[in-house]
């Protein structure tokens, strides 16, 4: 029971931990207060508990499609908000960060992490609730805490390995990771729509399960990091490309459409690392 709890909670935690790591690295560049993190974690955890409690009713919505529609909505919001956050960071001057834009970035970070925590949190709560009145509850809780700690540690390690790099390198790494996250989210949302028959399922465009199995540790890490799927369908691949393009486009937009209304800038608070 214990190893399964470790693996399951680790799987659920890893995606959100990596996303938090990247957003923290970005926020270090734009010098925001990082108050968004506790706000997003606490509010996300509370809403996840409410949704987990009501999952029986939600699942029955739209002829048993409620669960998928809700998760697909969260994933789409994550993708679009990542694009907005990237656009904001591309317009923020790290030497003279405009307070309005930094605050807007913090709001985006809250939305992204809130949605990620709600999505993964409800599954963790449902899993733990199944053992609540059994003799295995303590074992499962210990395993869960262990899995959570490993996931959080990987996220922290990821953050420090990102901030360890100089400004330009870090910015490129964060951008690539956020673009892949956004692509992954949109791709996963199409998969959920196929599961409820709102999108047509078609044969996979390739099969790399013999090369990197989704069940392997490397496969799981790739899944959390870049949304690796061994057998993606054409719609999934198209959604992935659309997500990546949205974020890349959001990053390039200020270069071609510079902000005409220059905002009042605050005094310099620090230099870009």
């Amino acid at each position: 029971m214990l190893p399964n709890a470790v693996i399951l909670i680790l799987q659920e935690t890893l995606e959100a931990a990596l996303l938090i790591g990247v957003l923290l690295a970005v926020s270090t560049r734009v010098h925001d207060s990082k108050r968004w993190l506790p706000i997003a974690l606490i509010s996300g955890g509370c809403v996840a508990a409410i949704l987990a409690n009501q999952m029986g009713i939600i699942s029955e919505w739209f002829d048993y499609a409620g669960q998928e529609l809700l998760n697909a909505l969260f994933q789409t919001i994550i993708c679009l908000t990542i694009a907005l956050a990237v656009w904001l960071t591309a317009t923020i001057d790290p030497l003279n960060p405009q307070p309005g834009k930094v605050a807007a970035f913090s709001h985006c970070a809250i939305i992204i992490i809130f949605c990620a925590v709600v999505r993964e949190g409800q599954e963790i709560i449902l899993y733990l609730s199944g053992f609540m009145y059994t003799e295995n509850f303590q074992k499962v809780l210990t395993g869960g805490a262990l899995g959570f700690s490993i996931g959080a540690s990987i996220g922290i390690l990821f953050f420090y390995s990102l901030v360890d790099h100089a400004g330009r390198e870090r910015r490129t790494a964060c951008l690539v990771l956020l673009a892949l996250f956004a692509g992954n989210m949109l791709s996963q949302s199409t998969l959920l729509l196929m599961q409820i028959d709102w999108l047509t399922q078609s044969p996979p465009i390739w099969n790399t399960s013999t090369l990197v199995a989704e069940t392997s540790i490397f496969g799981q890490l790739l899944y959390a990091l870049v949304g690796y799927e061994a057998t993606p369908s054409p719609i999934q691949a198209a959604a992935y490309i659309l997500g990546v393009t949205l974020v890349t486009g959001a990053n390039l937009m200020p270069r071609y459409y510079p902000d005409k209304k220059k905002q009042q800038v605050q005094p310099v608070r620090g230099n870009d690392a």
Partner: peptide
């Protein structure tokens, strides 16, 4: 993993997957 499907089914309830 092979079907690319994942869905939580609450206790004493039913679910539909295509």
């Amino acid at each position: 993993y092979e079907l690319n499907r994942e869905k939580v089914i609450i206790g004493n309830s039913k679910a539909v997957i295509f």
